[in-house]
Design a protein around this nucleic acid. Structure first.
Lengths: 217, 217, 217, 217
DNA sequence: AATGAATGAGTATTCATTCAT
DNA sequence: GATGAATGAATACTCATTCAT
């Protein structure tokens, strides 16, 4: 009566080595959480995306929450790596500032998933970030880069001297983040499609203008 | 075992005040969704908060999603009402701009729930806003106020003339929104408590400075 | 705060007299139960169909089950009335038999609701019929008519004499009822649309042929 | 407080026999749906009958509707298997016809559940049958058997030649099905217990008589 | 007679997680 | 390391019925 005959070998599919399995689960988790958020993301779906057994998710990550933390860390690691590649020190202060704005805009434009994860994390009281050694330790190199560019500008007499680098960072991040994070709502309410590339470019010019003039000595 | 004292009658609802019942459910929903988000909010909990029978939630609002939409609309209605009270036309251009920034900061500081709902709504593709006549129709009066102040500033020769009001609005909203929306994460990562009133005041000065200088002719 | 001002008169809509209200609820119930069955039928929907207040359903009928019984009785009363109009005594035995078959087929074809109610009632162990004085008392006049026609046929030597009228009734009812009751399934399985008028006519001829020959002396 | 005695182990399912688990759920579903119908059947109850966790029902069958479809298919498969065993070709035409009638009567008499499911399925527009590859493909072998017996009868000059096999099948099925399907109602209304074995035998003789005479050349 | 508001027990379904191998 | 089967607690939503006026 049994469909599976006793002699039938189990479909052993574990061709991949552990690291690959783990990595594919993590990747699947990032995609899932970025799309659906922490609550909306499904462990089942993550396993399916990773083409792995659901139990493996628990074997490697312990729980959904831990997995989320790992996904968050991976996301942070990625952006930090890109930030580290930004060589602002090679650029004159104004160009450095523009470069920073462009970097921020481009990254967010291309990585909407980052926006979702960041929003979600804050909605949950930054619980995972706080519990993450990694996220806390490797803080953004941008502040240092920004500080340095700011100082050079001040020294050259083109930037005002009463600007706090962290506050500047937050305001630039805010202007760029909010644009993409709330783009859909803004577009709906104001009847103007802010997701169009043209609109993005125009907004970029606006921020650059505002910031450079704002920093002007 | 009973929490209720023997003499306590069952919490018979106010049968003559359906509006009150409806309003209390809506209020409970706003609180619940603001705390837990759309997915995290529980209909059961909303009913309990409103001291209403769970079925009443459905009786009055049809579904969790509709209820969320109603909560969102109520939230929008509230902020719009406040915005309408902002009499920027009575102020000189610079003061008007400062007033706007202050309003934005103060509102967000006091209404963290608004932040959560806005983030959540965007995470869900602005689905409810798009489906809401009300949210779409009564769009923010701020843009008009901002336009007017901007124009006056330009006429007076104190503001530059190449600023788009909507883009300015978005950038100001971004700077303020992001600060509160991501305050917890930022605080954790940078090891500096941005939620302290002092920090908020300092950031406020920063934005004002940056914006006014940025708009300067 | 109240939307309804105290002075606003209640929308008194009870223009109709009680009998009309009761009748419209009953009619709505018949339609609803015929479509959805006892379990599938919704009291809410019945009230809406009848444009009556839901509570009125209870006021007039006591419970959903009682209402179902009433609907069933109304359905029976209707078909019995039609049966009583059948004047088989005026027809020669063979024609009487054909008339009976045609009546049965036509009624079922036009009143699919009757089929649903009868099936449903049986699925529930004929519970309502058993509890209905009316359904039990006014039993079908068809048996008497059939008996009489059968006897005449026997006397005339054209019908065999060993036929029990009730059994004949059941077999004719079966042949006609089953055709419509299970028409959809039969059509699906045999890939032949039995609901087409042509198919119905052909089947009618088949039954007539089979029955008359079957009864033949 | 615990109902379970300390020594009683939790009913740990047979982890090595998923087929058994699946089968027991299916069996429980057939029983439940046959008794209560599609709407009346409770998933909870099915799980309990099968001594399985409720979630397993979903694990194996996806939804109540799919489960119903599977139950329907199992029921069809069973009757088809029996039909295939009917060796009408070995019998003379008249005997073949009688055999068919007896088979039909006996099956329905013993499997009241089949009647309920068939009625219910039709009440739902044959939705599940239409969506079932299996039900559509393995259509009844009876039609072929019946055709063959009919033809032989015609060739032997004992059956009339203008009989359509499908229509004959439907009329026989109708006479038998209706008897059991509506037996309770008929018994109640006519005050004659048709469920008694004696009554069944008598009705059987009636159908045989009617059919054979009806088919007579 | 009529009405809208309120209730409680149910009902299918989902989901993170663990077991046994 | 890997797998499929199993579990329990939730969760949104429904429905017949009753209350108070």
């Amino acid at each position: 009566m049994s469909i599976v005959s006793p002699s039938a070998t189990k479909p052993v599919r574990n061709r991949r080595n552990p690291e690959v399995t783990r990595a594919s689960i993590l990747e699947a988790a990032r995609a899932e959480f970025a799309e659906k958020g922490l609550e909306g993301g499904r462990v089942d779906q993550i396993a399916r995306r990773a083409k792995a057994n659901k139990q493996l998710v628990y074997y490697y990550f312990g729980s959904k929450d831990e997995l989320y933390k790992s996904a968050l860390e991976a996301t942070y690691a990625e952006i930090r790596a890109l930030e580290r590649e930004l060589d602002l020190t090679a650029l004159p202060p104004r160009e450095a500032m523009v470069r920073l704005i462009d970097f921020s805009l481009e990254y967010l434009d291309k990585h909407r998933d980052f926006i979702r994860m960041l929003s979600d994390e804050n909605a949950h009281g930054a619980r995972h970030v706080r519990g993450s050694e990694m996220a806390l330790q490797t803080n953004s190199p941008l502040i240092a880069l920004l500080s340095e560019a700011l100082e050079r500008g001040v020294r050259e007499g083109i930037f005002r001297s009463d600007i706090d680098p962290l506050e500047l960072y937050v305001s630039i991040a805010g202007m760029t983040f909010f644009y993409f994070a709330n783009g859909l709502t803004l577009s709906a309410i104001f009847g103007r499609d802010l997701t169009q590339p043209r609109a993005v470019r125009s907004y970029r010019d606006h921020i650059v203008k505002l910031t450079l003039a704002g920093l002007g000595a």
